[in-house]
Design a protein around this nucleic acid. Structure first.
Lengths: 145, 145
DNA sequence: CGTTGTTAGTTACAGAATCAACTACTACCT
DNA sequence: AGGTAGTAGTTGATTCTGTAACTAACAACG
């Protein structure tokens, strides 16, 4: 019995968002993976440090809604690759200040320019109003409850 | 040196899409996980069979862009839970026809109604035009190249 | 100070994703 | 028919993720 239900999976927003997110991440993923052997969390951590400068793991986690174990492992990987420098905070010795090294900065700037081009390309077929509206709505949906 | 770059992570579409996708999937995930012990791929497979009726693993994978190993393991889990029935295709004995059992149908209908409510709730704060535009743009982004 | 509670970050273990190799079968070509 | 190539689906090795338990450090209250 092949009945075509009234429900369309393509209209279910979480599904649609995931498909769009996955598809739109593919080409960028290939680049940070091939070029620097990074994972998704790695480039996010890298970008946070590149954009905001010195931060602690905790702060990155709060800003990006990434779980602390993911951050912890990502920081380890990035430190092994000499992309960041860890320094224990003298004021609170539980936490560490994280800063990009020169190599980390270089990787960040490289990937940032890739991201900018890629973003423009993704939005190229939309009008300016559409692009603005899309970002606005996505930001609303992304807001942590 | 905490310099605020010209680059805003929140404007990078793949990042924004991922954040929105993750956030908007959370509550739904909790339900299919708590109620049926399912994973993301599991409910997707279930929905495909619920909506389109009998399909092969291959067909589901094509439609949903899910890798065949994920499907294979998901089908195993769903079969163990007696949510679907596997039958070797007589015409091509490499592939199997997959059909939901009564229990599978029930789970599908239950989750479908949850999904419908949830979707309406997610879009409640958007105007009708915005909702339409959002879906249109997401579908465009989700199109496999 | 000392006990109790909390926080930053790490680690252990189990479950899940990934990629490549594999089995079983079909299709084509001669 | 026989050989080669291709396809549907599974399995295994490795890596990644998620949860919970852990360590080390701070805070607050007596």
């Amino acid at each position: 019995m092949v009945e075509n239900d009234e429900f369309d999976l393509q209209d279910f927003l979480p599904y649609l968002l995931n498909q769009a997110a996955e598809e739109s991440s593919l080409a960028f993923q290939k680049i940070y993976k091939d070029r620097y052997g990074m994972l998704r969390t790695d480039w996010r951590v890298l970008f946070h440090l590149g954009i905001y400068g010195e931060m602690t793991a905790k702060e990155i986690g709060l800003r990006a809604s990434i779980h602390k174990t993911k951050i912890s492992r990502s920081v380890q990987r990035l430190a092994e690759k000499r992309f960041l420098q860890r320094t224990r905070d003298a004021a609170d010795r539980r936490s560490e200040k994280l800063v990009l090294t020169a190599a980390g900065e270089a990787a960040y700037r490289d990937l940032r320019s890739v991201a900018q081009e890629y973003d423009a390309q993704l939005l190229a077929s939309f009008s300016e109003e559409d692009a603005v509206a899309l970002r606005r709505m996505l930001r609303r949906l992304a807001k942590r409850a």
